Amino acid sequence: MSSSASAWVSAARPRTLPLALSSIWLGSFLAAFYGTFNWEVVVWASVTTVFLQVLSNLANDYGDSIHGADSAHRQGPQRAVQAGLITPKAMRSAMIVAGILSLCSGLYLLYVSVGFVKEVFFFFLGLGLLAIAAAITYTSGSRPYGYAGLGDISVFIFFGLVGVLGTFYLHAGWLGWELLLPATSSGLYSAGVLNVNNIRDIESDRLAGKRSVPVRIGRQKAVYYHTFLLVGGIIVALAYVLLEYQSPWQFLFMLSVPLFFRNLKAVRQYTDAKALDPYLKQLALSTLLFVLLFGIGHLLASY
């Protein structure tokens, strides 16, 4: 792979895609559990989410480099714009392309799922445009909300509530309050991945004026917060199973629980950024495994 291609792949951050897809697949598994599943929905929702996540990653690379968070003080992986591997102009152009692709894919997703039912179509179109805006303005623009410490809320909403509940609705055409529980699990775990990232970058973020949650509350309290996110995700998943219990298979997701406690132990133990960095990927993959086990367990319970 050429150095230019390698720089673009690095900027797209493929390791973040499993986490982005987790909420889509969880919503789809739940739809299958309730007997309302559409293959076109899960395929096009996944494609749209990949484009959105790539857009977010490119915008994050661009924004953090422009605002100084990806400076020489940063201890995580090097970013493409910061390193001069991709020019800011080229990165902005790539962001436009990713935004257009996510919009086109999202429009086709709406066409195959809800058709042209005006109220529903425009509601989801609005959500899609909001997701694009959120992806871009997390670290880009004159007032990036990630620098105000609001990234966790955004991740919880889009990787939890919107991702799971929105996908489920596109499959089923209805929602129930109990679905808030697995959607909350997805949102809490996703916020956990961001929290590991922010704990790793706490010093460089502080120097850049990026007021992430760990910068605001300090490392020790950020570890307590991490405990709340991971343990909370397990508790609400258990609550959903107990509420919708049909078979012991529904507890299959508990096999993933040791991985979350391994991540929590690492966040408590490692203060060096390089030692902590692999646990971003580990938590993202643990979340994906949780979703797969949760989904398979519920599918087995429904037969």
Rank of each mutant, 00 (worst) to 15 (best):
A69I: 04
A69N: 01
D70F: 00
S71Q: 12
S71R: 08
A72I: 15
A72D: 13
A72C: 08
A72Y: 11
H73P: 04
H73C: 06
R74Y: 06
R74E: 01
R74L: 07
Q75F: 02
Q75N: 08
G76M: 02
G76C: 01
P77E: 01
Q78D: 12
Q78N: 11
R79P: 09
R79K: 15
A80T: 13
V81Y: 02
V81N: 02
Q82H: 15
Q82M: 15
Q82V: 02
A83P: 05
A83S: 13
A83F: 11
G84D: 13
G84R: 07
G84C: 06
G84K: 07
L85E: 01
I86R: 00
I86E: 03
T87A: 06
T87G: 14
P88R: 06
P88Y: 10
P88D: 03
P88V: 10
K89Q: 14
A90R: 09
A90W: 06
A90V: 05
M91V: 12
R92A: 13
R92P: 04
R92G: 09
S93V: 14
A94H: 02
A94G: 15
A94S: 10
M95C: 10
M95I: 08
I96Y: 12
I96E: 10
I96D: 11
I96Q: 11
I96F: 15
V97K: 09
V97Q: 12
A98Q: 10
A98H: 01
A98K: 02
I100F: 12
I100Q: 06
I100M: 14
I100R: 08
I100V: 15
I100E: 07
L101R: 03
L101H: 07
L101Y: 08
S102I: 03
L103Y: 09
L103K: 04
S105D: 00
S105T: 09
S105G: 03
G106Q: 09
G106K: 08
L107Y: 05
L107A: 09
L109I: 07
L109H: 00
L109Y: 01
L109P: 04
L109A: 00
L110F: 03
L110M: 14
L110D: 01
L110W: 01
Y111W: 12
Y111G: 00
V112Y: 07
S113W: 04
S113A: 14
V114R: 07
V114N: 03
G115L: 09
G115V: 11
G115P: 06
G115T: 15
F116L: 08
F116P: 06
V117I: 14
K118N: 12
E119S: 14
E119P: 00
E119D: 15
V120L: 14
F121S: 02
F123I: 03
F124V: 04
F124A: 05
F124Q: 02
F124H: 01
L125I: 08
L125R: 01
L125Q: 02
L125V: 10
G126P: 12
G126N: 11
G128K: 00
L129W: 09
L129C: 10
